[in-house]
Design a binder for these strands. Sequence first.
DNA 1: AATTGGCAGTCACGATCAGTGAGTGCTAAC
DNA 2: GTTAGCACTCACTGATCGTGACTGCCAATT
Lengths: 346, 346
Amino acid sequence: MVSERGLEVLRVIVQDYVASREPVGSKSIVERHAFGVSAATIRNDMALLEDEELITAPHTSSGRVPTDKGYRVFVDQLADLRPLSPAQRQAIEAFVGQSADLDDVLARTVRLLSQLTHQVALVQYPSLSSSKVRHVELVPLTSTRLMTVFITDTGRVEQRLIDVSAALDDAFLADLRARLNAALVGLGLSDAAAKLEAFPDQFSAERRPLVAQVTSTLVEQVLANRQDRLLMAGTANLARTEDDFSGSIYPVLEAIEEQVTLLRLFGEMEAEHGAPQGAHGVAVSIGQENADFGLGQTSVLSSGYTTSGGSVARLGVLGPTRMDYSNNMAAVRAVARYLSRLLGTD
Amino acid sequence: MVSERGLEVLRVIVQDYVASREPVGSKSIVERHAFGVSAATIRNDMALLEDEELITAPHTSSGRVPTDKGYRVFVDQLADLRPLSPAQRQAIEAFVGQSADLDDVLARTVRLLSQLTHQVALVQYPSLSSSKVRHVELVPLTSTRLMTVFITDTGRVEQRLIDVSAALDDAFLADLRARLNAALVGLGLSDAAAKLEAFPDQFSAERRPLVAQVTSTLVEQVLANRQDRLLMAGTANLARTEDDFSGSIYPVLEAIEEQVTLLRLFGEMEAEHGAPQGAHGVAVSIGQENADFGLGQTSVLSSGYTTSGGSVARLGVLGPTRMDYSNNMAAVRAVARYLSRLLGTD
DNA sequence: AATTGGCAGTCACGATCAGTGAGTGCTAAC
DNA sequence: GTTAGCACTCACTGATCGTGACTGCCAATT
């Protein structure tokens, strides 16, 4: 059983190791922290911690380093959410955007988060599900190529290109556009999709294939989920913290370029760690817990944010397990809240 | 003066060095290539090449390595555009997209290029200048927040968020939307911008501030240049080729995350090297030629591509100076041509 | 029972050093 | 212009050896 003081020792080991990047020994602990006991006593506590596999020794005679399990205990029980520094607060405030589109807001958010944490930052696009159809537009690009644009009342805009088999005819297109808008505008998304299924039936057999092509594309757009996109910034920070990765950073860079992987990871974090860390709303996934994703040497912090459309998406940071959890959790939480406010109904 | 054979020696030095990553010596040259002369003769040629600063020796007694100047001569005079391998051709063909929007096409293109070259790939968004207004849409998100959507007949879609001071009124919005479309649809972009300037005058003094807010946003959108965005893929390849960078790859990763920098670099390449390398349409910028951009240890290859809108944008790759120019130039050219065909009027 | 001082033992790390080998530059001969 | 030969340079490797920062354990102390 690890004593009260033992946990305190774990805390300072994590803190010092994160700060110095060097294994921390019993002597340096008593020097730097006022425990009021001798190094030998600390050594006894450390032996306990090692039995519990919360810390480990890189080699027989050297300081100790936290294990993944140790970080986990630190995050769950010991980390105080260090309040952001005034400079950090200011960075968030200064970020207040002029009017700009969603793409810009998210792009700036991801950069902000990366600067606050000095890690790789991730922001998932929100999906707006409870929205209604606002407008449908058909744009002929060439004689056989058509662009469809689909706009919802929550501001989602989807565009698609179609190569049509038959040549396009302007008058017919105008008619089709009018009929589509008449039929769809104001409908909820699932209703709109249902209505589109039967839509081609009202046309002559001759026109029907073309119309069917358009409507099936529109169905895709209606149901399309922008949530499968995410933004990333600060990959350079991985190189900066290169020494924290045993081999090369190549596999890590490779893994994070696979957006699907990260989206799955976000999904799992929502499911698994959503509630436990829910106290402050930041989920943490550490080291080997991410092994399935090729990210066994990294930790990921994430938090949900909401938009006026009522949708929930995630944002977070990714970095070496040896990272400043206190600061980064606070930053992720602050940015998520800020973004919720910015995109929310206020 | 460097002899004919001297240049041939330079060629094999570049080729062997790129392949082996090791300084190449006179002996290994005569072993691997049928020059029909002895190593001593090659050594004489190499001494000449060194006088011309085309190659250099990492240390007194070791093989030679090409200088930036040497790569330049290689690219300008010696590189044959090695035809793509069947597998590479196939990768491009397999890439033929189903109907999908511009974002998807470019995202897939950038990944393709990165896989073909094993380098960082870059694709600049096209700007569509000779297009006409197709449709304007106003979407109220909350009582004081409005989204404007702007669509051209070439398929560009721009969206912006505005916080309006006065509360929004649906009937008025519908009227405003109708009037805007009536006034603008069919106009060229500069004409539309001009017309928007005077547009608020037709409204009552009470309404005018709100309308002015909307029109000024629309003017921005009309003139907005999507060319200031670019996509990137394959940053992991930098880590893979890490040894080719003297220090860390951190400054390189940092530089390429600054999109503005890369866009300026693309701009300069268009201006300076467009014509000279124009023979095959691929501009090459080597090592110290990029020092201004913090990319003194990297080379950048780029080529323009065109869209049906008549606009020209660039795509290319970035990697260590020690890269396979022959293959990469061919890949950049092939992908640029392919993309032009895909987005062009055919 | 918890804490402490002391001491032997471990082991990474850095410095030093000699041997090795790839590769050059030069010169004299062809 | 080309070649063979030879002396010379210099990075790299591996071995050896201190050094120092630790721990682990034990017996003494509170």
